[in-house]
Computed example of a mutant assay.
Amino acid sequence: MTADRTTRRGFWRTNSLTLGFGAAFLIVLAAQAVAGRAEFNEQLAVEGLQQIGLGDYLMSSDFAVDVTENWQSEFLQFFLYIFGTVYLLQRGSPESKELHKAGSESEREQRMGDHARADSPRWAGTKDWRQAVYAHSLGLVMGLFFLLSWLAQSVSGVAAFNDLRLRQLQEPVTWVSYLGSADFWNRSLQNWQSELLAVAAMAILSVYLRQRGSPESKPVGAPHDATGVEG
């Protein structure tokens, strides 16, 4: 039993970052569902319509579009950040590579091909399409998640948009028409600009400010012009 307990404690400790944020995500998502249903029912009450339960709200396009429009902007942020930081630099920021390492770097630096080690991922040591795919897999998957969540936003968005139009006795619009609508682009762009602002703020503020013990910050005593150094 002691060994099992130690193993479980070790698992939670060594995966606490993912598990902690995953649990926080579920808690906040549940809270959003409760608050979103309350707001949606307020709108229905104003329009003299019957209110809905939490289960029905969770299955509604209103809830789906609110969730997916945030997801797509987050995945876009990481997609752009992952690819952008290959070439873009910020002197003094731990969010940037060292200034002389701009670009995709050599196979030796990346431990690819003949320079792969015994503990390197298997595809890193290949010299065909598998290496090319694996070398860009993180950015590609983030880009795929962005496209899928943006597609989900567009589908749930047109359903929510048409639901509102029907309550106002207006004709519904097609999905293609919705893609060119102000509602769709306003939902997308208002999230994109906030994510891009957050990345830019993190890059420049981490040049001068510190958070002891965080890998997102430089060591407290590191000089302001130290680049690519993590705490």
Rank of each mutant, 00 (worst) to 15 (best):
S106C: 12
E95P: 00
R130P: 02
D114A: 14
R122W: 14
L147R: 00
P121M: 12
G139W: 00
D128K: 00
K97R: 13
G92V: 05
R130H: 13
A132W: 14
R91N: 11
L140S: 05
R111W: 03
A135G: 11
W123Q: 03
F145H: 03
K127N: 11
L138E: 05
V141R: 01
K101P: 07
D114E: 12
S104W: 15
V141D: 00
K97N: 09
Q110M: 10
H100I: 02
M142G: 00
H136T: 11
Q90A: 14
P94L: 15
Y134H: 10
M112K: 12
G139I: 04
R130K: 15
E107S: 11
S149V: 01
R111T: 09
E109T: 02
V141H: 04
P121T: 05
L140A: 09
H100F: 10
K101Q: 14
A132C: 06
G125L: 02
G139P: 13
L148R: 08
Y134Q: 06
V141K: 01
E95N: 14
A102S: 15
R111C: 03
S104C: 08
G103T: 00
E98W: 11
W150E: 03
L148V: 10
A135W: 08
L151Q: 06
D128G: 05
L147H: 01
D114T: 07
G103Y: 04
G139T: 01
R122Q: 05
A132G: 05
A152Y: 10
F146H: 04
R122S: 09
K127C: 00
D128W: 04
W150F: 13
T126C: 05
L99A: 08
G113W: 06
G92Q: 05
L148K: 02
R91P: 15
K127V: 08
E109F: 13
F146P: 01
V141C: 01
K101C: 11
